[in-house]
Design a protein around this nucleic acid. Structure first.
Lengths: 112, 112
DNA sequence: ACATGCTACCTTGTTATGCAAGGTACTGTG
DNA sequence: CACAGTACCTTGCATAACAAGGTAGCATGT
């Protein structure tokens, strides 16, 4: 239970990074995002994603367009704005910095 | 400001992982932990660390002993308990899983 | 003896995120 | 026209990092 907690917490922010990455090259709607993330072992509920997507759209990092579906109500297909593409680059840099920090700590621990 | 926010959020949980890693082989007290983390580009304030260390100690993942200092009040030197060592292993696995998830998303994005 | 500064430990209030649970609305089917 | 399925969204909770502020031990200088 303790480990589970921190392992969830490790995902904070990373989820946003993954979503922005997935939207880099394609328009995706929410349910598809969820199954993409699930395929990468990142289990998320729609109650997590909708607020996140709305927040990113309100800050103009994401945009969407409605598209009708063959099997139900219309869907919001999201994509990156230009600012969103810049943001993705910043997140990629941040991710590299963090992994490097973690690795330097793991390395430092064994050698020192 | 937006990017800064998520980049901070990316560190959630990772900080705990780093601390447990640093304590794997040595006894360290708080100020030393902070400078070790700073050396790895993970800036943290003591207001973040003290609650974290107390929490880990209350859940019996960390233990401490008092040691007097030449230049001021005594210090709490922390180290891992046996449960803490197991916890570290769980965190290492979780970290590997997460980095793999992120990489699979980054890769998948370029190829698909 | 005492004031001052430094170090170390700790607490409180704020903000933000992920999640569970619950709710609304559109679409197709019998 | 009821019903199931899909898609979108909101509310309340728990947790973590942080800023700011507080207490107390120790050394130094007068």
């Amino acid at each position: 239970m303790d480990a589970k907690n921190t392992i969830s917490q490790m995902r904070r922010g990373i989820l946003e990074f993954c979503i922005v990455s997935l939207l880099a090259d394609q328009e995706i709607y929410t349910a598809e995002l969820i199954s993409r993330l699930k395929a990468a072992n990142l289990i998320v509920t729609d109650g997590t994603l909708y607020p996140l997507l709305n927040r990113l759209q309100k800050t103009e990092l994401l945009q969407y367009r409605w598209e009708e579906s063959d099997s139900g109500p219309p869907r919001k297909y999201y994509s990156l704005t230009e600012a969103g593409a810049d943001y993705l680059q910043a997140l990629e840099t941040a991710w590299q910095d963090i992994t490097e920090s973690v690795h330097s700590i793991l390395r430092g621990n064994n050698s020192e």
